[in-house]
Design a protein around this nucleic acid. Structure first.
Lengths: 205, 205
DNA sequence: TTTTGTTGATTGATCAGTCAATCAAAAATA
DNA sequence: TATTTTTGATTGACTGATCAATCAACAAAA
């Protein structure tokens, strides 16, 4: 079977497998064997390409955030006005695949891992900063800078909070409701600050 | 040294030690030895009293949430009006000891664990429900029930979100700023709904 | 003497990581 | 084209370390 140029194929297969196994398992305490099995290769091969389990996990976070970033870039390009761009950012955050239980479980596991792995932490910090600054840039077009900072901080927190609450799977909130809550927050805070923004009247459920 | 009536003393020491070790380590992958050492006893004793590592961890979550609950009850008792009670709930959530990096790290670890341990999950669900219903009960005194539901959901999400963002320790938000953001959210959403509530003008930083 | 508290030593299982060996395609050579 | 050499892909078997859990034994109180 051995053909040349397998490396990128295997790396991708292993990273994808890791994401799936972590999501199912809901934790980073997964074995290399499980991941390798899911990817259809031997554990030894995973070590061959990634050197260590930690490195494989780091690549997995990286790839996951990269995909998320791509979605944001695409959606932001399609949106015209700052307000539309804000909605686009929110929409991407709650995209169906992002909001799937396994994805959320994996996400959570990475946050926990970031407490120990400096490199994992760095990736998540980059994500958090990007979310905040994307929100901030567009909010600044709609209200004074100081207020924009607050609202960006609050909206980012709300998005992350809706995620983490989802992970408990008790009284799960729908994607639409999550989007509506975040939109409402922005509308409500913007209402008294801007001329054009209409008062909040979002629908939930 | 063995004296009688040691059991409750040891149990508490072990649970407290577990909390500390988990907080420092930022993960539940801590050894019984570490916990026992921190508590000043042998690993065998930890097993003697708790039967298994999992059970010790579960007791640790339980004790942690119990303490949080006690704080809420106390503060709620001191508050008079519904609006004051809302502020009390928020204040407790961001209490200094709750907002300490190690506490947040431990909290996060428990959330991750809840993906695997049904019992851990149950405790966290209870906490989430209680937070939500405490908020809801008091919001209902200030606005129509339907709106109260939304605001309670949003406020709970924002509180949890501020927590999780804190765990990354990049651009940490102060306790006061976290409280202000949550208060602002409630004020802003309540403003157009209630007669008495004043429009948001909270100070941050 | 019985009961409660306590530990050191040990066991058994689990896993990350290593290594030597194999296999088949590609490249070099005849 | 046919043959040999090289090289990347791949694995099974093994190792060493870690750790939860057990147990037999001992010490002090009742």
């Amino acid at each position: 079977m051995p053909k040349i140029g397998m490396e990128p194929v295997r790396r991708k297969a292993l990273v994808d497998a890791a994401m799936r196994v972590i999501g199912d398992h809901g934790s980073l305490t997964v074995t290399m064997s499980e991941i390798a099995k899911q990817a259809g290769v031997s554990p030894a091969l995973a070590h061959h390409y990634f050197g260590s389990k930690e490195q494989l996990l780091i690549e997995t976070v990286r790839s996951h955030l990269q995909r998320l970033r791509d979605s944001v870039v695409t959606e932001l390009g399609a949106a015209k006005t700052p307000r539309e761009k804000l909605s686009a950012i929110i929409r991407v955050s709650f995209q169906a695949d992002q909001f799937a239980p396994e994805t959320i479980a994996a996400w959570l596991a990475f946050y926990a891992e970031a407490q120990r792995s400096e490199e994992t932490r760095r990736f998540l910090v980059i994500y958090a900063r990007r979310l905040r600054s994307n929100l901030l840039a567009n909010l600044k077009a709609l209200c004074p800078g100081e207020d924009a900072e607050r609202v960006a901080e609050g909206a980012a927190a709300m998005i992350d909070g809706l995620y983490i609450r989802q992970s408990l799977r008790s009284a799960p909130i729908s994607i639409e409701a999550s989007i509506a809550l975040t939109e409402d927050y922005i509308n409500a805070l913007l209402a008294p600050l801007s001329q054009k923004a209409a008062p909040s009247k979002g629908q939930i459920k």
